[in-house]
């Protein structure tokens, strides 16, 4: 473990943020009422080579568990599920124009949206935080995906 990252196998995870364990999205508070959302490295990888990203228009209000967009890969398409409730206040133009950046830099240039939210204190319980918990969860997920045959060898 070093600074704000933890290594699990070949994955390096940022642990300065919260994770939605079901949908492999991270949530990074950027102000008291605003969070940035992006994929963790495993969440990107299991979908396969990305082809297209669609994000909800600015101003869209989403509840936790609702779709704020969709993602299409070579052989997969699925919704992007909001990890917290809020209003879409920013879309990442880099990810929209070049979805490959999500795979290449999921914590940096590959972020997805920013949500304005007052629900984080109430919804925090659904999210994982802390290096140890994050690493434990992630390790289990890697194993599960490996068993399913979803990860390259």
């Amino acid at each position: 473990m070093s600074g704000s990252t933890v290594r699990v196998g070949r994955y390096e995870l940022m642990v300065d943020r919260l994770y939605d364990p079901e949908h492999h999205l991270w949530v990074l508070p950027v102000s008291d009422t605003r969070v940035r959302v992006g994929f963790d490295p495993l969440g990107v990888e299991v979908n396969g080579t990305l082809a297209q990203l669609v994000l909800a228009p600015l101003g869209t209000v989403v509840r936790r568990g609702e779709a704020f967009g969709s993602l299409e890969a070579a052989k997969f398409v699925g919704p992007l599920v909001a990890p917290v409730s809020g209003r879409v206040v920013a879309q990442n133009p880099v990810a929209l124009s070049n979805p490959a950046r999500i795979e290449q830099d999921p914590y940096g240039e590959g972020w997805l949206v920013e949500l304005e939210t007052t629900e984080l204190p109430a919804e925090r319980a659904y999210l994982l935080e802390g290096a140890e918990r994050i690493a434990l969860w992630f390790r289990e997920r890697v194993e599960a995906y490996r068993r399913e045959g979803v990860l390259a060898e």
């Binding site: 990888e45 299991v46 979908n47 396969g48 080579t49 890969a73 070579a74 052989k75 997969f76 398409v77 699925g78 399913e148 045959g149 979803v150 990860l151 390259a152 060898e153």
Partner: peptide, 16 residues
């Protein structure tokens, strides 16, 4: 094919 690459685990990925 990409589907072959996925099933033979040359590439990560899955089907919808």
């Amino acid at each position: 094919s990409m589907a072959s690459a996925i099933v033979l685990r040359f590439r990560s990925g899955r089907f919808s």
